[in-house]
């Protein structure tokens, strides 16, 4: 499921299960590239929640994570960050990370 976080909802959205957090910006080219890949993966992988965080709309969360580059991806397992990737990564890499995240 792809859901958009707000500063208020973010913590609850990453508390359980396998979650990919995508910090993005409306005008950012590489973010659009990653966004398309995440949409495909979401369809294939129903056990992963994808939480999108617009850095412009969620300044508090972006500051907490010290987001100084986008796209910025965090991979959560049951509320814990298990991996962090800054910048656009390939579809293949993303699939592999998500596979590891779940299994």
């Amino acid at each position: 499921m792809i859901e958009y976080a707000t500063d208020e909802t973010f913590k609850d959205m990453v508390a359980e299960g396998a979650v990919v957090v995508d910090f993005f910006g409306k005008t950012c080219g590489p973010c659009k590239e990653i966004g398309r890949v995440l949409e495909t993966i979401e369809d294939e992988m129903p056990f992963v929640n994808i939480v999108k965080v617009d850095v412009d709309e969620c300044p508090k969360t972006s500051d907490e994570f010290r987001v100084d580059g986008i796209p910025d991806l965090y991979f959560y397992k049951d509320g814990e960050i298990v991996k962090h990737e800054l910048g656009a990564i390939s579809e293949e890499e993303l699939r592999s990370i998500i596979g590891e995240l779940i299994y």
Partner: peptide, 20 residues
């Protein structure tokens, strides 16, 4: 470039990055 990193730094992405 640190703020908007691409996965690959090729000529095309550099031109795009400069425009942006």
């Amino acid at each position: 470039r640190g703020m908007y990193p691409w996965s690959e730094e090729d000529e095309e992405s550099l031109v795009y990055q400069k425009e942006e």
